[in-house]
């Protein structure tokens, strides 16, 4: 009996381990319950939503009716397409501008370098809400409000990317850059063909960080977008939740499921990158 206990303990199944698991599973339940309830409601008829008793399972299964209703009430797929376009546009410009700047800060000596880096560190602390007013005014005066450009422009520069990639490039061996110069490779080609490929994990981590942040951002789209056909997912969700007079909870939850699904699926496939991204950056 004691031998069995020891063996179980060694396999992480001793009484104390089981107690910890039980405790953690309660937390897991609390954490995941909203997701469960969201999916459950999206699959259940409206009549069940408004009953005063609790049930774990749809008593009548309505299949994808709620999803069909949600898709017909609002252009959800359009919202998601907007999200994809905006996230991709932002990420591409961020990488194209931040990588060379980070490389210059990491591997070159030039006048103004210390000032530039100090500004990057300062900018790191400034949230979007601070430059929002003047940017809005500028966009209003140039007539570019309510456009994809307006959605993306404040985020083209990611000082966070500069900071992160500088850190990564600093640890890239000078010898390899020297070898590349001796081999006759041009400076830009050294950066994009030799240095950048070795920063793959950091770039992946940053991409995930950037996509998550901008897919989920509500503040800026709320300010600059007035046409529903340009709304990214969170703003679309807000429109949808707003006119809930005619909307059932079922359709609302179906819409929420659809709009959260893409990131969730990416996360489940690339969770290692997500978690490493957080530990590498420590910034949300």
């Amino acid at each position: 009996m004691t031998a069995l206990l020891t063996r179980l303990r060694r396999q992480g199944l001793g009484p104390r381990d089981l107690a910890v698991h039980a405790f953690l599973l309660v937390f897991v339940f609390i954490t995941l319950f909203p997701f469960y309830w969201m999916i459950l409601t999206s699959l259940r008829p409206a009549s069940e939503v408004f009953t005063a008793h609790f049930s774990w399972w749809p008593e009548t299964f309505v299949g994808l009716d709620n999803f069909r209703a949600a898709l017909s009430q609002a252009p959800l797929l359009r919202f998601m397409l907007n999200g994809v376009l905006v996230c991709a546009g932002i990420l591409i410009v961020q990488l194209l501008t931040a990588i060379p700047c980070a490389y210059a800060l990491a591997k070159f000596e030039f006048r103004g370098k210390a000032l530039l880096f100090a500004l990057v560190l300062f900018a790191l602390c400034v949230p979007i809400q601070v430059p929002a007013l003047p940017l809005y005014v500028a966009l209003a005066f140039t007539g570019t409000l309510d456009s994809y450009f307006a959605l993306m422009v404040p985020f083209f520069l990611s000082v966070f990317a500069i900071f992160l990639f500088r850190q990564v490039f600093k640890s890239f061996p000078d010898d390899i850059i020297h070898a590349a110069r001796l081999d006759g490779i041009g400076e830009a080609e050294i950066l994009w063909r030799i240095v950048v490929p070795s920063a793959g994990p950091a770039i992946a981590a940053f991409a995930i960080f950037s996509i998550t942040a901008h897919w989920n951002d509500l503040y800026w789209p709320l300010i600059v977008i007035t046409s529903p056909e340009l709304a990214p997912p969170p703003l679309g969700m807000m429109y949808f939740a707003d006119n809930d007079s005619g909307t059932t909870f079922g359709a609302l939850m179906a819409a929420a499921t659809l709009l959260t699904a893409p990131l969730m699926i990416i996360f489940l496939f690339a969770q290692r990158h997500f978690i490493r991204g957080v530990t590498m950056t420590g910034v949300k």
């Binding site: 897991v28 997912p233 939850m253 709009l259 969730m264 996360f267």
Partner: peptide
Amino acid sequence: FFLPVTSTLIAMATV
């Protein structure tokens, strides 16, 4: 435990 971090807060807020 990490799942809520990646979820779209607006959607989950309605939930």
